[in-house]
Simulated scan of single mutants.
Amino acid sequence: MCELGERLRRAREAKGLSLKEAAERLALKAGVLEALEACRFEALPEPPLARGYLRRYALLLGLDPEPLLALYPRQAPPPPPRKGPRRRPFPLGLFLFLLLLFGLGYGAYLLLRPRPVQVVEVAPPPPSKPPERYPLRVVSEPPGARVYLDGFYLGQTPLESPPVEGGKRVLRLELPGYEPLEAEVLLKAPLTLTYRLKPLPQPPPASPPVPVEKGKLVLKLEGRSWLRVRQGDKRLYEGIPEVGAELSFDLPVEVRAGNPGAVRVILEGQDLGPMGEPGKPVTKSFP
């Protein structure tokens, strides 16, 4: 087993997760996670999609995805060649008999044919060209939107995607708090797309806000992110909360987030904004 697969397997087993449970949390097939842990890269989809799966899997397991992505090959290795069945030697006697039979048949054909047959050679068709591939860049306002191409996750904006197959493709952007955006694009050259996302209408508050107590830290989940909260040597929380959840802790605490861009920090009633940049794990202390 390679180093990449060994790290993933150890982290999953340390969390007490089976492949099936981890696949259900990520809405993926268990075979994808099994191929990542076994380093069977030829069984995975094209590298940009497979690297997106690897990033999500690492965040679920509480791992920093960047070192793991550095171990993933840019291009999947070709499958090993298949060995055909060994042929048995052709019997010499049978070969001579067939050769004689063919000679007799061909002689009869030359004697009985009514007229010569004109043979026209047809040139074989030219080999088909592989589909063209082009780089794709996607920018959104605000940034941090999840980008899907024909249903496959590519990453978050601003996105610099490796070359993908050209033609008519369906692009979809999703960001919590904003309306999903879906558009059909024609990819026939390097393409840069910029979109402005429309915020969802906010319902009126049902009741006046409750004043926040002093000495409290509130974490609001505006997207999916793995979190770990410690108070000294004591672990207060570790996991992936539901989107929209609010977690409150007594100060002082230390917080580590796998996707800081999806975690809004409110310290003693003051909104400090997102904890960090999307997709870049960070650890912060709040005294």
Rank of each mutant, 00 (worst) to 15 (best):
E3G: 07
E6H: 12
L8M: 04
R12Q: 02
L17P: 01
L19P: 04
E21P: 01
A22Q: 05
A23C: 07
E24L: 10
E24T: 08
A27T: 07
L28R: 06
K29R: 12
G31N: 11
V32Y: 09
E34Y: 15
A35V: 00
E37T: 07
F41Y: 13
A43L: 12
P48G: 00
L54Y: 00
A58R: 08
P65D: 07
L68D: 01
L69S: 01
Q75R: 15
P79H: 05
P80C: 04
P81T: 05
G84S: 08
P85D: 08
R87L: 13
P89F: 14
P91Q: 03
F97W: 09
F97N: 06
L98Q: 12
L101K: 07
F102E: 13
F102W: 15
F102T: 14
G103D: 07
G103F: 07
Y106V: 05
R113I: 05
Q118W: 11
V119A: 04
V120L: 15
E121W: 13
V122H: 12
P124I: 01
P124W: 06
P127N: 10
S128R: 12
K129S: 12
P130A: 08
R133M: 09
L136Y: 01
R146M: 13
R146N: 11
Y148C: 02
Y148D: 11
E160F: 12
S161L: 13
P162G: 04
P162T: 00
G167H: 05
G167R: 03
R172A: 10
E174G: 10
E174V: 15
P176S: 15
G177C: 10
Y178R: 08
E179F: 11
P180V: 13
E182G: 11
V185L: 13
Y195F: 15
Y195R: 14
Y195I: 13
P201I: 10
P201L: 10
P204H: 05
A206R: 15
P209G: 05
L217R: 09
K220W: 10
S225W: 01
S225L: 04
W226M: 06
K234N: 07
R235A: 09
R235C: 03
Y237E: 08
E238T: 03
E238A: 10
E242A: 14
S248P: 00
P252L: 02
E254H: 06
E254Y: 09
G258F: 08
N259M: 10
P260W: 00
G261P: 13
V263M: 05
E268Q: 11
P274T: 09
G276L: 02
T283F: 01
S285L: 11
